[in-house]
Design a protein around this nucleic acid. Structure first.
Lengths: 156, 156
DNA sequence: GCAAAACCAAGTAAGACCCTAGGATAAGGC
DNA sequence: GCCTTATCCTAGGGTCTTACTTGGTTTTGC
């Protein structure tokens, strides 16, 4: 599993889309301004998202993008895999070069972890995130954050 | 949360360490050969791991590395955070530039997801992975993999 | 003292990331 | 039928990260 800023941009943009597509198609120009991502880079990301049918483009004036399916049918893993090529890591390919057995075990452990992360992200849909965010906002305050990330924000 | 090949190398190396440190300290040269990572790159990774007390170095002949704590006290998140600097993503910092409210919501949703991934990886320890791997090996076969990753390996 | 190992620092080729630039194509408004 | 708006497409480049190489210095068991 690969999770980089590229994937973050894609997820953020898809969230923006999920939140705003109620009022007609959303233009990339809007997302660009809202999320601080260059238009051209968004175009590249959306080309990949479109190839996986995660978004649907409407051309011409008044056009823009809709989600390609329901927000409950799109998982975070779908989005990340669309823009961040999934890289298979182990060099031994599951059998060759793995005479020692131990070496192979290490690799299979990594595979296992990688699968678990993928499963985890597969089980979170765009709709889940939006719903949880709205519930959180209704309660009027942010959920408590992890010490690690919270520390960096609260400092200074 | 950032999850790159650098983090993978670190996790793999730590797994190697966890599996082999029963017979005395493990040299980076061994890990280099076993996992196919250059010695110097391992040195850089282990400098970061050492700074976070995740490993303990023994100098001189017969030296090498031990885990800095018990394998059950070291989470995958610990390892990844040690080598891959944790980057705080949102530009608005939780308050500024977020007049619209909606833009802030998108960012807070991302934060929330990021936290969830972090929590997930915090709850998996090195010991967990090793134990699960051994159980799996006792059963004599690999667990079923996800269609996505499995497809790429089974092909050809 | 010698050799094995951790430790340290600088540099570097390749690639990823993110952007700019320039266009081609489709479709609504006049 | 033009003009504008927007998606769609391609090429390129500056900057950073990745992963490695080189060349050391310390520490320490023998």
């Amino acid at each position: 599993m690969r999770l980089s800023t590229k994937g973050r941009y894609a997820v953020t943009a898809m969230l923006d889309l999920a939140l705003n597509s109620g009022r007609g198609p959303v233009t990339l120009a809007d997302i660009s301004v809202n999320q601080g991502i260059s238009l051209s880079y968004l175009e590249q990301l959306f080309a990949a998202l479109r190839a996986k049918q995660l978004v649907r483009g409407i051309r011409g004036p008044g056009g823009g993008y809709y989600l390609g399916k329901g927000a409950d049918e799109i998982s975070i893993a779908d989005i990340i895999c669309a823009v961040d090529e999934w890289v298979e890591f182990t060099r031994c390919g599951g059998r060759e070069n793995c005479r020692g057995g131990e070496r192979c075990l290490t690799h299979s452990l990594w595979d296992q972890l990688s699968d678990e992360i993928f499963t985890f992200l597969s089980e979170i849909s765009l709709a889940d995130l939006v719903e949880r965010g709205q519930r959180q906002q209704r309660q009027g305050e942010r959920v408590e954050r992890h010490p690690m990330t919270a520390g960096k924000q609260r400092a200074a």
